[in-house]
Design a protein around this nucleic acid. Structure first.
Lengths: 250, 250
DNA sequence: CAAGCTTAATTTGTCAGACAAGATGCTAAA
DNA sequence: TTTAGCATCTTGTCTGACAAATTAAGCTTG
C-alpha cells in the first residue's frame, strides 16, 4: 500500500515539491512531535528520488524549524515545531503603513471584543497599567511609542488567543515608526494626545465592563482616528523621522 | 585579503559554519544586492570543502531569503529582504482549529468588505470561477477542499492588500484538514453543502454588487456557520479523516 | 541474573564524479 | 544588423562511497 505516492509531477524544483509534501505531512500530524521520520534512503525510495533531493528537502524543513537532525540517529519532527510566515519587508512610506493598518484594524477590533469577555482580573490590571505608562512617558517628554504598543499588546493577550498576539506582534515593528510620526506631530498639537487618551479610556472601560460590542466599537473608532491622524502628518515629517532611525539607507 | 579564509574549524555543522560565513559576507556588503556570487564549485574550492556542503549552506541562505538561485545561471543575493514570523505549530484538535478560525473570521470579513469596493472585473471573474470549481469538484466526488481555499484566496486577492493574502495563506494550511472533516460530514447530509453554496453565493453577489457592508455580513455569516458545522462534526470523525491520509504511520 | 564493555548495524554528514536542464554568450549565416 | 545555431557554463539531480556518530545486540564478567 501507500503506493499512491506517485512520482512527483514535472514542475519547478523537485526538492521543493518533496519539501512541501513532507511539510504538509508533518503539519497534518502524520508524524507526531518528536517522532523519527523515515530515513533519507527510505524517503528517497518512497518518492522515487535520490537521496540528494531528500537531503535538500529535509534541509529546507530543518531551516524552517520543522525538523531537527541528529547524525547517526535520524531526523525528528521538532518537539516545538514552528511554521514561519515570510513576506517582503514593507516600505515605510505612508501607503505601506496604511496597508498594515488596514490589516490591524479588524484584528484589534476583534481582540478587544474577545478581551472584553475573556480578560482575567490580572490582565485588566495590566492593561490599565499600560495606559498609565503611556501618560507617564509622554509627560516625561518621550514619544511613548513603546508604551502604546505594549498597551495594545496587553489587550491582545487578554483575548486568550495566541494567534492574535503573534500576528499583531509581527506587524508592530512596521507601526513603530508610524506611531512615532503621529506622536511627534501630536506633541505640537495637544488636542491629538487628548483624543488618544480618551479613545484608550473608552476601550478600557468597555473591557472592564465586560461589554464586547462596546469594546469593539471603541477599538474601531480608535483605529480609524489613528489613520486620520497619520494622514494628517505631512510627508516631510515622515521622511524626517525616518532619517533619525539608525541604519537608515545611505 | 581573501586568502585568509582558512579551513573551517572543527565544530558543529560544517555546512552551518559555511552558511554563517557566507551570510556575514553578504550582510557586510561583500556582494551587492542582486549580484551573482561565486559558483558552487568556486566556493567549494575557496573554503576547501565539497560542493555538497556548499549547496547545503546556500540552501540555508536561500531558505532565509538572503539569496535566490536560478538553474543554469547562478545564485544571486536577494534584492528584496524578507522578514519572517515564526510561531508554534498549532495542533489539529478541535479547539486549536477554532482558535485559528477566530483569527480568520475578522480577516475574511474585512477582506470581503474591501473586495466589494476594490475588486477588478477580472478578479470578480476569478472568484466566480473558483465557486464553480468547488461545485465541480464536489460533484466529481472530491472533497473540494483545495477549491474552497482557492475561493477564499481569490476574495483576499481582490482586497488589494498583500498582507491579507499573506496571513490568510499562512493559516490556510491549518484549516485544510478541518474543512475536509466538515466536507466528509457534509457529504452525508446534503443540506450542509447547500448551505455552503448559498453562503458563498451571498458573498459573491455582494462583492459583485459592490456593496461592502453586505459582503462583510455575508462573510461573517459564512464563517460563523462554518464554525457551527465544524463543531457538529464528532471528534471521532476528525480522527478518522486524519487516519485516512496516505502514508499514515504503520 | 545483572551490569558493563565490545562489536556490529544503522543513519546522517561529507566527499567525489557524472549527467541533465537551462542560461549565457559567441559565432556564423542570412 | 539581425538571427539562428552552437559551445560553454551553472545549478539541479543521480549514483556510489566513506566518515562519524548513534543505537542495539551480544558477549563477558561479577
Amino acid at each position: 500500500m501507500s503506493g499512491d505516492i506517485s512520482a512527483p509531477s514535472r514542475g519547478p524544483q523537485l526538492s521543493e515539491q518533496v519539501a512541501t509534501r513532507l511539510s504538509d505531512a508533518i503539519q497534518s500530524g502524520e508524524w507526531a512531535r518528536g517522532e523519527r521520520l523515515p530515513t533519507e534512503a527510505a524517503l528517497g525510495q518512497r518518492f522515487g528520488i535520490s537521496r540528494s533531493v531528500v537531503r535538500e528537502a529535509i534541509s529546507m524543513l530543518r531551516n524552517a524549524g520543522l525538523v531537527t537532525s541528529r547524525r547517526g540517529s535520524g531526523s525528528f519532527v521538532a518537539d516545538a515545531p514552528t511554521v514561519s510566515l515570510r513576506l517582503a519587508l514593507p516600505d515605510s512610506d505612508l501607503d505601506s503603513v496604511i496597508e498594515v493598518l488596514e490589516l490591524r484594524r479588524p484584528l484589534e477590533v476583534e481582540a478587544a471584543r474577545l478581551a472584553a469577555s475573556r480578560r482575567t482580573p490580572s490582565q485588566l490590571r495590566r492593561i490599565r497599567n499600560a495606559m498609565v505608562d503611556i501618560d507617564e512617558a509622554v509627560e516625561a517628554g518621550h514619544s511613548g511609542v513603546e508604551q502604546d504598543l505594549a498597551f495594545h499588546r496587553a489587550i491582545a493577550e487578554a483575548a486568550h488567543n495566541a494567534h492574535f498576539t503573534a500576528v499583531l506582534d509581527f506587524y508592530n515593528r512596521f507601526l513603530h515608526h508610524a506611531i512615532q510620526v503621529t506622536r511627534t506631530n501630536e506633541s505640537l498639537r495637544e488636542t491629538f494626545m487628548q483624543q488618544v487618551v480618551a479613545e484608550h479610556q473608552a476601550i478600557v472601560d468597555a473591557i472592564a465592563a465586560g461589554d464586547p460590542e462596546a469594546a469593539a466599537q471603541a477599538a474601531a473608532r480608535h483605529l480609524e482616528h489613528a489613520e486620520v491622524r497619520l494622514r494628517q502628518a505631512p510627508e516631510d515629517l515622515i521622511a524626517r523621522v525616518q532619517a533619525q532611525r539608525p541604519g537608515a539607507p545611505e
